[in-house]
């Protein structure tokens, strides 16, 4: 998987990190159509991604995009994908995906895992 930037995500990050647009753009896994077919995925399917870097998981919605690299998947840089990356490489990591259904992970799900001192 690779991590990218998206100008519309940057826009909504400035204006409202709680908005549905921010969550939708953050919790989307972009893949090419031919790669989606390999995993029997369609637009809007919810998959669980598990990072092999740290074993953390996220649930995200799949979307067809020609901007995704062939044979790989892509997410926009956000608090969500940063669940899955390691400090050694913030841009690329390996992960497993499986179709699960249900709701996508939201930023508040991540924040709930923060343990205060």
């Amino acid at each position: 998987m690779i991590v990218t930037r998206d100008v519309f995500h940057s826009e909504v990050r400035e204006t409202d990190k709680e908005s549905d647009s921010y969550i939708e753009l953050s919790a989307t896994l972009y893949m090419r159509e031919e790669d989606m077919k390999k995993f029997d995925l369609g637009d809007g399917d919810v998959v669980e991604i598990t990072s092999t870097a740290n074993n953390n998981s996220l649930r995200v919605s799949v979307k067809n995009s020609n901007e995704a690299p062939p044979g790989k998947a892509m997410m926009v840089n956000s608090i969500l994908v940063n669940q899955l990356v390691s400090i050694e490489n913030l841009k690329r990591f390996k992960a497993k995906i499986k179709k699960v259904g249900g709701n996508v992970t939201r930023p508040e799900d991540i924040m709930a895992k923060f343990e205060r001192k």
């Binding site: 740290n54 940063n82 669940q83 400090i87 923060f114 343990e115």
Partner: peptide, 10 residues
Amino acid sequence: VASLPFEIAS
């Protein structure tokens, strides 16, 4: 908190 990997941000 948003920009670092979770293991570190936490």
